[in-house]
Amino acid sequence: MTSSPQPVISLEAIRFRWPGQSVDLIDIDELSLKPGEHLFVRGASGSGKTTLLNLLAGVHAPTDGVVRLLGTDLADLSASRRDQFRADHLGVIFQQFNLLPYLTALENVTLSCAFSDRKSKRAGEGQDITSTARSLLDALNLAGSLHDAPVNKLSVGQQQRVAVARALIGGPEILIADEPTSALDADNRDRFMDLLFREAEAQHCTLVFVSHDPQLADRFDHQISLRSVNDDMDPAQATGVAL
């Protein structure tokens, strides 16, 4: 991986509070991730993890500070341009219920390309989008017989792997995962993490991984921890430390 001078993600003096709140939910002075670097965000529920992901995904705007993705200041984009930016450059994996229940596994994966010309172009390079989606699902150890199954026929572990394939198709630069392993048992969790890392590396993708599980932190280059507002009323409850 050639290191580029331009960081994939850069946060400068980020503060966020909901309207009417007296304390900042998020307070990060500086954070910068270069291509191929991965970030682990640790925090209990209520610590603002999801809010941080929403800031990174451009769904919410920070109260203060600059969120720069791939050199673009998200504040410079209109709401619909930010949505388009997310469609083109990000992949998102949730804790659970990542998939649309009325589509098959394969359709869920290719759906990512429906909202992004960039992704469909990149996924369609050399072969058609469906074949790309199938090879991704294969790489994530999802048996071919399950590709065309309705997703509610899949186990939770299988569903999460379909979600990874959907997030990765079309080669987004940034992959955001919000506790994707919380519904998995230890065995499944480790295998899931292996696959996630392998595929993220294969696509040169920067991974932002949120979890309350400190056991997973070792795999990451960078870590930050968010302290819960509920645990601690210290106004500087969240700290961003690039280790």
Partner: peptide, 16 residues
């Protein structure tokens, strides 16, 4: 609500 959040996460605009 979930369906909409999933669609938003893959880049669906609010207008979508």
């Amino acid at each position: 609500r979930r369906e909409i959040a999933v669609l938003r996460s893959i880049g669906a605009r609010a207008s979508h």
